[in-house]
Computed example of a mutant assay.
Amino acid sequence: MLNCNISSFEVLSVVLFSALTFGSTGAVLAQNAAHQSHERAQLVASGAATGVQHAPAPGAAGNSALTAFQRADANRDGQLSAEEARQLPAVSQRFEEMDADGNGQLSLAEFNKGVQKAP
């Protein structure tokens, strides 16, 4: 028969090793979940996850106009309200003129058209 003399040091070593293994696995899973959450937040911010797509404006100034529009669009609905447009003083001053359809919102197309007409 086998002699089962296991020292307490060996038992504690196995328990410690197991705890470290499970703890490390939990940390990796938590990091992965946090990374996925961060990626989702970036998609939402860019409009990709919500279905709102911002078409880039033509020309070199188009990228800066698109960036300004996206920053001002606080609720990420693809429209600028008069309140959101206040972040852009030049747009805020001409908001009613730029709002071609008179719905109280600036679409990206209205925004781009108004920016191109800027004095």
Rank of each mutant, 00 (worst) to 15 (best):
S46H: 03
M1Y: 12
A85S: 11
G23D: 02
K117P: 01
S92D: 09
E10V: 07
A90D: 14
G26Q: 06
D101M: 04
P56S: 13
F111A: 05
L29G: 01
F9C: 01
T25K: 04
H54C: 08
N32Y: 14
L80N: 02
I6C: 07
V44R: 12
Q105G: 01
F17G: 03
Q93A: 15
Q93H: 06
S46K: 04
A49K: 07
V115Q: 12
R71P: 00
A27F: 02
Q42W: 09
E96S: 15
L20K: 00
V15M: 13
V15Y: 05
R86Y: 00
V28I: 14
S7H: 12
S8N: 09
A72P: 01
A85K: 04
S92Q: 05
V11S: 06
L12Y: 07
N63A: 15
F22K: 02
N112I: 09
Q53I: 14
E39P: 02
T50H: 01
A49P: 05
A90W: 02
S8C: 03
S46G: 05
T21K: 00
V91Q: 08
A90P: 04
T25I: 13
D101C: 05
M1Q: 13
L80A: 02
A55C: 06
G78V: 04
T21A: 07
T50L: 05
G78C: 03
L2G: 08
S64I: 14
